[in-house]
């Protein structure tokens, strides 16, 4: 397989990086052995690469890292600071509540739904036009919406358990 200089130039970096295989590798190897210009171009790439590698290896060798273990061991002894939970993580945490807790949440939700259902002006739907969505999360089998009711100014967490056969609603509430 013969190959032109312009084609070799496009492959030179991959050749240098040992990413060429098969016929391309054979062709470029043969070409750079014979072609002075392509050989020089390869040498330019290699020169920069060698300089970088040599420098950063030397930097590492020269750095006294004898105190690293002390730094690490001291840090290990210090308890890890807890990262603040995101809104999504907080809500997903709710999903991991034990079953009795879920039952309580569901009971409260039913009570709230009933209250809202019989409030004047709210008979048509649970989520009224003047309610305001604060945030929502769609999880794998479950979606959660947090909204503030326009009438009572309450914050409601709405949990929708989406099974294969349909959608079951469970609700929770915080004021």
């Amino acid at each position: 397989m013969t190959i032109r200089c312009e084609d070799v130039r496009k492959l030179l970096e991959r050749f240098y990086d040992r990413e060429l295989k098969g016929k391309q590798l054979t062709a470029v190897t043969a070409h750079v052995q014979e072609c002075v210009n392509c050989s020089k171009e390869l040498e330019r790439i290699e020169r920069v690469g060698r300089a970088l590698k040599a420098h950063y290896e030397q930097v590492a060798v020269s750095e006294s890292l004898s105190g690293m273990w002390n730094r690490v061991s001291e840090a290990i002894e210090t308890p890890a600071a807890a990262e603040p939970l995101s809104f999504r993580e907080k809500l997903l945490g709710i999903l991991r509540l034990p079953k009795p807790a879920w039952a309580a949440v569901a009971a409260v939700a039913v009570a709230v739904i009933l209250v809202f259902a019989y409030l004047p002006g709210n008979q048509d739907s649970t989520f009224a036009a003047n309610d305001c969505i604060i945030d929502s999360v769609v999880a794998e089998n479950c979606s959660i919406m947090v909204y503030e009711t326009g009438n009572a100014g309450m914050k409601v967490i709405w949990v929708m358990d989406e099974g294969t056969s349909g959608t079951n609603n469970n609700g929770g509430v915080t004021s």
Binding site: E57, A60, V61, E63, L65, V72, A75
Partner: peptide, 27 residues
């Protein structure tokens, strides 16, 4: 520690950040 320091130094470009990064990585 030496290899990790070389990478951290290469990415960050200064000694203090590289040392902090290596420490953080080990922890």
């Amino acid at each position: 520690q030496q290899r990790m320091y070389a990478v951290a130094y290469g990415l960050l470009g200064n000694r203090e950040d590289a040392l902090d990064t290596v420490q953080e990585a080990f922890v």
